[in-house]
Design a protein around this nucleic acid. Sequence first.
RNA 1: GCGCCUGUAGCUCAGCUGGAUAGAGCAACGGACUUCUAAUCCGUAGGUCGCAGGUUCGAAUCCUGCCAGGCGUACCA
Length: 554
Amino acid sequence: MKQKIKNMIYNASKDAYDKGDLPSPDFPEIEVEEPKAESHGDFSTNISMVMAAVQKMPPRKIAEAIIKNIDDPDGIIDRTEIAGPGFINFCLNRYSWHPVLREIHERDTLYGASDIGKGKKVQVEFVSANPTGPLHVGHGRGAAVGDSIANILLFCGYNVEKEYYINDSGRQISTLGRSVFMRYKELFGTDIQFPDDCYQGDYIRDLAIEIKKKKEDKLLFLSEEEAISYCARFAADNILSEIKEDLECFGIVFDRWYSEQGLYDSGKVDRVINDFRKQNIIFEDDGALWFRTKDFGDEKNRVVVRNNGLTTYFASDIAYHQDKFDRGFERIIDIWGADHHGYIPRVSAAIEALGYGRDKFDVILIQLVNLLREGEPVAMSTRAGEFVTLRDVINEVGSDAARFIFLTRHYESALDFDLELAKKKTNDNPVYYVQYVHARISSIARKAQERGTSDIAWNAAAVSRLTEPEEIQLIKIMSRYPEIVRCSAEYMEPHRITYFLMNLASAFHAYYNKHRVLTDEAELTLGRLYLVLAVKKIIRNGLALLGVSAPEKM
RNA sequence: GCGCCUGUAGCUCAGCUGGAUAGAGCAACGGACUUCUAAUCCGUAGGUCGCAGGUUCGAAUCCUGCCAGGCGUACCA
């Protein structure tokens, strides 16, 4: 619709110039927007103000010239007006909105889909939590955002893969092994001083018990190194499968689980380090190997191999991102916790050194989640290993509520997650507010079917009966959906869809309370049914992009 | 110290990347169920958009400088 208006304005400007109403053929990018105030019509453009300098005419005069030359063969425009400093407002005929419904029904699950991605191969990497402990709420937010962004990009024509990077190598894994082994020894009566820098949670004890069941006392006869290594592998494998289960409960399926250890085993880390040494991008100093990140805009150089011979995470991250490009991804999106933001210049530097443009790499930083109950913070201490896990949250409030709430904020804003509020089935809790629309319409559809009106094909006469302001309002809102999805993809902001759905839901509930869908008049009923079933489709589509279900009954 | 994020109604947050009189929900107050699901709706009230400058026809939005909070600033992850 907006595009139609744009074209009209463009053609009108051109005609105005041809006829001499406008002195210059130099037209700016035309912007058409939907005004906030209803009195300003359905669409408005600021073109006359933008043009004023070039045309050397007052904006209102330009507006007159354009309006005079508007060609509207289908008569979709009801009236135009010049307002304020020179806005041109367009007010559309009610019936010009009706065809939107047909489009929604015909495109169905693909309404709002586009090909702006042009099949570009893009990878979204998210969660990627170390397999050293259970997922917590913060990971949940990253999971919800990452999964939704991937869904949206897919819907917009990108060729998307979702990936989880497993940090299954390095120091924190050996710390994990050490932690478990100490608890294991404890089970055999050894008196231990459990160090602060080890993992504290009860799950460490549980893993030790598991090992004891399986291996009895055999580990006590191995060398400490062997025993720790066994515990590390056992623990990491177990925790990782727990993580996989948690994410499955959360409705998230990764295309690939990528092992960091695999990068070492295949020699990719060594290879890239050697290549960079040859290019003098990596150099030796003080017994350590340094990456010249400073040459690529970072504030200082960074160590890749420490003087004790151990690699840092940065080393494998270089190889990892190289591998991403080697696998043919044209665009890489990493989703990290905001506390890692200092890491961005480093990885960007690596990507540039690898010969790829920075514009191919995006990092989305997810701000932290404050877990509350009845408005009071829930005590959490990672150090002491006491925290509410993602699984606890899903079990308590459900996957739908959790995912929706994670997507009710821009990811750059910290999020308060109130467990009690997430369970409430009232207006406080937007999940049910939106889902309820779907359930209500489903119920209407069932009733309609009982009455024998299940025909929902396009019926011009029936649809032309939709003349109530609330009906036109609903269609207008729905007509914006494709653009909302596009913007969501472009800026990678799923919350735009969340807000759109809440807005649509609100308009629907208002309509529902004011008008009956199933009336005594067959034609009107058909038209209204056609309308609400379109609403149902959009709610379903939008929720799907968020990873939230659309129930038939509630 | 430096870098990033945040600051909008009593509370929690949107604000279409510069548009017209800044919007929702909650909380407060007053109303609506013999009617398709009241997990709903309607109405009232609520503002120095952190502060100060600047850019222009026009700023919550862009620039600069402050103030406050969070995070980061390792041969940790």
